[in-house]
């Protein structure tokens, strides 16, 4: 196979799989709590800064993972209690409040680290040969880890007792309480879990991103677009949404440039929002 083509395909897979990790957290929270957490991207951003912080302390890269989970898990706990729960059944206000939160987190990080780009060194240097193409090892590793993570989570969601209960609450919240599922606690844990997943994605992606306070904005928009395109109904929708958004962006970017990639994604999202607001796989 043509090495250039191979690299492009790998880039698409990389883009789609990492995006899917970020969206998964957002989608599970939305399904269970009915809350579109517009600060989800900021948890990715904080995860990335955790990686930066750890490297600045000369600690091993992997130490960033527990730190990010701790920081974002704690933040998620506080946010769920103070913002999400009091506004339950006021979805529009929740949207605004989490949007306010996203500004707060962004500005807070900016106040500490400034606006400039920080770079995080890749923990795994060098490249590997994939079908004759030279591909950066870390990128490849990340793609594999992302796919494994999404697949593992989907498996867990389908097979585990907790996953079953989450699906039960999403399907029929009232009945869920009646059969003894502690809905409030489950919602809180799910929210925290979603934040942690975003943080984990942030740590993993940090070496490949220009780490800066507005990094979350891109992610939340793209994630939202994924949900718009895929629909909020199913994992199939989520993955196809990530495929469309991540795929189109990386393909168009590869052939033209990043601006066109981004513009195309925006246009697709606007068309979906307008003409097919329930996405490709609507919730029944």
């Amino acid at each position: 196979m043509d090495p250039i083509l191979t690299i492009n395909i790998l880039n698409v897979v990389y883009e789609v799989s990492t995006l899917a990790v970020v969206v998964l957290g957002l989608a599970v929270v939305f399904g269970l709590l009915g809350v579109m957490n517009l600060a989800h991207g900021e948890f990715v951003m904080i995860g990335a800064y955790c990686a930066f912080f750890i490297q600045a302390q000369n600690l091993p890269f992997l130490a960033a993972i527990p730190l990010a989970l701790l920081v974002c898990g704690f933040l998620g706990l506080v946010v769920e209690r103070l913002l999400v729960r009091p506004l339950y059944a006021r979805p529009f206000d929740t949207l605004l409040a989490t949007w306010g939160l996203s500004m707060l987190l962004r500005e807070a990080v900016e106040a500490v680290y400034g606006r400039g780009f920080r770079s995080v060194a890749t923990p795994l240097t060098g490249s590997v040969d994939v079908l004759g193409a030279d591909y950066p090892s870390y990128r490849l590793l990340l793609t594999v880890v992302s796919i494994a993570l999404v697949a593992g989570l989907v498996w867990w969601f389908v097979r585990s007792a907790t996953g079953r209960r989450i699906r039960a609450v999403v399907n029929n919240r009232e009945l869920a309480g009646s059969v003894g599922i502690p809905v409030t606690a489950l919602a809180r844990n799910t929210f925290v879990f979603g934040c942690c997943l975003a943080a984990l994605a942030g740590v993993m992606l940090a070496p490949l991103l220009p780490v800066n306070p507005t990094l979350g904005l891109d992610f939340i928009l793209k994630s939202f677009f994924v949900l718009v395109v895929g629909g909020l109904g199913s994992l199939v929708g989520l993955i196809s949404g990530a495929g469309v958004i991540g795929g189109v962006e990386s393909v168009v970017s590869a052939f033209l440039d990043r601006t066109y990639g981004y513009t195309t994604v925006l246009i697709i999202a606007i068309l979906f929002l307008w003409l097919r607001p329930n996405g490709l796989f609507p919730r029944t």
Partner: peptide, 20 residues
């Protein structure tokens, strides 16, 4: 005040929550 924007965002959240 280096945290001015943070304060502003917090004010916004408080307005959304309590002083619509």
């Amino acid at each position: 005040i280096s945290y001015w924007e943070v304060i502003l965002a917090a004010i916004f959240i408080v307005v959304v929550l309590y002083f619509r």
